[in-house]
Design a protein around this nucleic acid. Structure first.
Length: 509
RNA sequence: CGGGUUGUAGCGCAGCUUGGUAGCGCGUUUGACUGGGGGUCAAAAGGUCGUGGGUUCAAAUCCCGCCAGCCCGACCA
């Protein structure tokens, strides 16, 4: 590591999934824990999640929702109430069967006090919330019921990766109940838009909005809508989902109300969620071979100031100058908050500090040494530009311009990601071309597959069996039936059967 | 869950085939020299070799179980 050209090895093109893990570690976002598949989210990673929470929570409140909290444990019998739901989640449930530990003869603790009815650790909360709503909803006057909870959930996955798929993860789940189908559908779409707005406006991550095919739908939902993003390895990542649950869960949990005519009706429900997976999505959308790149609106620090002190006698003056610079920057605002400034006064070499913050993805770095002080300027670098590209800026101009600069970086990241997605999205009408587009380059066994493929916009007849075959053969699925695209009819790229519109095909996380 | 592979100092690794009680690079600490970019020199600290058992006079090394990571599958709103 004497003089590497990149801070992260391997690079994205050498080994994408290893690169991802190294970025997570280099930026000090999270690490594996002693428990299989469960991560420790470290302060820098958690700060990003807190920013996501803050923004999303504000959006949920603006759309009329309130937060509440429901139990971690769900009686197994609750899960049994909705057949499709059971199918979808039973395989990945952690089950609590005992409530006490006793010391065994060999000094080891053994479970004792078997529960009459086992509890599952929530993989999602439709059933427990449904049972609660059944009590809360009596009259049409109790509707709509608009509630969100911030919680952890557990899904016993076979293969895990930090942030992208872990056994335990943090998320929010909104659960609403409505008097009419129309209202519930409207809610489903409204929250989908909230997610899309957040992804694009705050994460600087372009997303496709669409509906899931039968095969990809949430277990128990009538319709699942999603936002799908393209990662830099050109695979699709589902970044959020919004479900129209119809009356399925209302019937399973007996959420009923008397309407204005005094008739007994089942409520119409929705649920919607995003998780800490968004952190993984953000990493894989923007970061480069020098580490994390944070969109300013979600960065725990917008600006890091690195004092450059070579002679002890300069120290006091530089400290005073940089502290006042930090204070003035904090008086500026960006995205409705004060500019977040990190003043790095650690007793370390300047170069080490700079690389530390590059890897952590801070949008703007400034260095201040005696020469800058004398010139009343700062030496500035942007994380979205090559790390050698640095510029002296007058102090006053820098302070005045910081908000606009952060917005420019934010917009630039979105544009770069959007251009990437466009460049790797292809309209395909020919079966052979479709196959060639997704065919994996041949490599040795047990070696990561090189980056290839992308999004294909192709017609699909809608037959789940055809989709399953393609998945078996190419590892490609329909990510969504996009909402934005017109209903241009055509012929299925696989079977030639009539197709109402193009869908998005891709390999997925 | 199947196949493969890995686990030795904070990080990256060597040592294991042919058992003889641990080494390298980076990092860390201290000192000096440096000084607008992950610097140079010197000294030092730091390891029950993932874990539990077995074989042996002796195990990082051989055998078995378990735990965890990674890759390829299967699976996964």
């Amino acid at each position: 590591m004497a003089n590497p050209t990149t801070a992260i090895t391997p690079t994205r093109s050498e080994n994408y999934s290893e690169w991802y893990q190294q970025v997570v570690r280099a930026a000090d976002l999270a690490e594996n824990s002693a428990v299989r598949g469960c991560m420790v989210i470290k302060p820098w990673g958690y700060a990003i999640w807190e920013n996501m929470q803050r923004v999303l929570d504000g959006m949920f409140k603006e759309t009329g929702h309130s937060n509440a909290y429901f139990p971690l444990f769900i009686p197994v019998s609750f899960l049994e109430k909705e057949a499709a739901h059971v199918d979808g989640f039973a395989k990945e449930c952690a089950v609590v069967t005992h409530h006490r530990l006793e010391m065994g003869p060999d000094g080891k603790l053994i479970p004792a006090g078997e529960l009459e009815e086992p509890l599952v650790v929530r993989p999602t909360s439709e059933t427990i919330i449904g049972a609660t709503y059944a009590k809360w909803v009596q009259s049409y006057r109790d509707l709509p019921l608009l509630i969100n909870q911030w919680a952890n959930v557990v899904r016993w996955e076979m293969r895990t990766r930090l942030f992208l798929r872990t056994t335990e993860f943090l998320w929010q789940e909104g659960h609403t109940a409505h008097a009419t189908r129309e209202e519930a559908v409207e809610e489903t779409m409204k929250m989908l838009k909230v997610y899309a707005n957040f992804a694009e406006g705050w994460m600087a991550m372009p997303v496709l909005q669409g509906r899931k095919t039968d095969g990809e739908r949430f277990p128990g939902a009538v319709d699942t809508y999603c936002i799908e993003a393209m990662m830099q390895d050109r695979r699709a990542l589902q970044a959020g989902t919004s479900h129209f649950l119809g009356q399925n869960f209302a019937k399973a949990s007996e959420i009923q109300f008397l309407d204005a005519q005094g008739e007994r009706q089942f409520a119409w429900t929705t649920s919607w969620g995003v998780s800490t997976r968004l952190v993984g999505a953000m990493i894989m959308t923007h970061s480069d071979d020098d580490g994390l790149i944070l969109p300013p609106k979600l960065a725990p620090a917008h600006v890091v100031i690195i004092p450059v002190v070579h002679k002890p006698e300069d120290s006091a003056a530089i400290q005073a100058w940089t502290r006042s610079l930090a204070d003035e920057l904090r008086k500026q605002s960006f995205d409705g908050r004060s500019v977040q400034v990190q003043l790095d006064e650690r007793d370390m070499r300047g170069g080490d500090k700079a690389w530390n913050w590059i890897k952590k993805g801070v949008p703007v770095r400034v260095e201040v040494g005696p020469r800058d002080m004398a010139a009343d300027s700062v030496f500035m670098a942007r994380r979205d530009k090559p790390h050698k590209e640095k510029l002296a800026v007058k102090r006053g101009d820098f302070i005045q311009g910081i908000s606009a600069l952060l917005q420019e970086i934010q917009d630039g990241l979105f544009k770069r990601a959007n251009d990437f997605r466009i460049a790797n999205t292809k309209v395909i009408d020919d079966a052979k071309e479709f196959e060639a587009y997704f065919a994996a380059p041949k490599v040795a066994e047990n070696v990561p597959t090189p980056i290839h493929g992308g999004f294909a916009l192709a017609h699909f007849c809608g037959d789940p069996k055809v989709e399953a075959q393609i998945k078996d053969r190419l590892g490609v699925t329909v990510r969504c039936i996009p909402l934005e695209m017109g209903n241009e009819p055509g012929k299925c790229v696989i079977t030639g059967a009539p197709s109402p519109q193009r869908v998005v095909w891709a390999k997925a996380y």
